[in-house]
């Protein structure tokens, strides 16, 4: 089907034989030992000091539920709880959070039972593509713990650090209101 119509046909197989692949590279000598407690589990890691909490979760611990949307604190997709407070993990250094309780989306459901906020997001269709969703949910859980939002307007303002490009904002608002009423 993919017969080329030009005279020349280039195959990557001919040009890049696998045997010529480079050997393993030098490892970094600049790593430090980092102990992190994530979702009540202790992890001991060797990391370069510049590794963010977000990249540590995703690339070193396999906890990919926390999302990278902008990597600059401008979208909220990477929101996690540190000591119960919502923060953006992309602007946090992993090394700086040693000794603190970190909770990610993977740590929210207990014994396979969804957290009420997770159930409410499903019920109110508070997401579409799902990529901002873990950050929205962690942010919403943080918001309720903070106790600063009473009115719809306050909830909206205090959920404005989480972008949803699909525009599931109405469902998100409904989900938060429902959980807030139940937990009040």
């Amino acid at each position: 089907m993919s017969t080329p119509d030009s005279n020349r046909h280039f195959s990557i197989l001919d040009q890049m034989p696998i045997a010529e692949a480079p050997n393993a590279s030098l490892g970094s000598d600049r790593t430090i030992a980092v102990k992190l407690k994530v979702n009540e589990t202790e992890h001991e890691l060797q990391l370069e000091p510049c590794v963010t909490l977000l990249d540590t979760l995703r690339e070193y611990l396999g906890l990919t539920g926390t999302k990278k949307g902008c990597d600059h604190g401008q979208c909220g997709a990477c929101t996690v709880l540190v000591e119960g407070e919502r923060v953006v993990s992309c602007l946090s250094l992993a090394a700086a959070h040693q000794g603190e309780e970190i909770t990610t989306i993977e740590g929210l459901a207990k014994d396979n039972k969804l957290h009420p906020m997770q159930s409410a997001f499903i019920k109110h269709d508070g997401f579409q593509c799902g990529y901002c969703t873990p950050g929205q949910i962690m942010s919403a859980v943080g918001l309720i713990a903070e106790g600063q939002a009473q009115t719809d307007g306050e909830i909206k303002e205090l959920m404005s650090g989480n972008i949803c490009r699909c525009g599931a904002y109405l469902g998100i608002l409904s989900a938060i209101k429902e959980v807030k009423e139940v937990t009040a």
Binding site: T64, G65, E106, A109, L114, D125, F127
Partner: peptide
């Protein structure tokens, strides 16, 4: 409800 909802809200 979305059938993939649980996967999305749990990460």
């Amino acid at each position: 409800d979305r059938v993939d909802g649980r996967l999305k809200v749990t990460g």
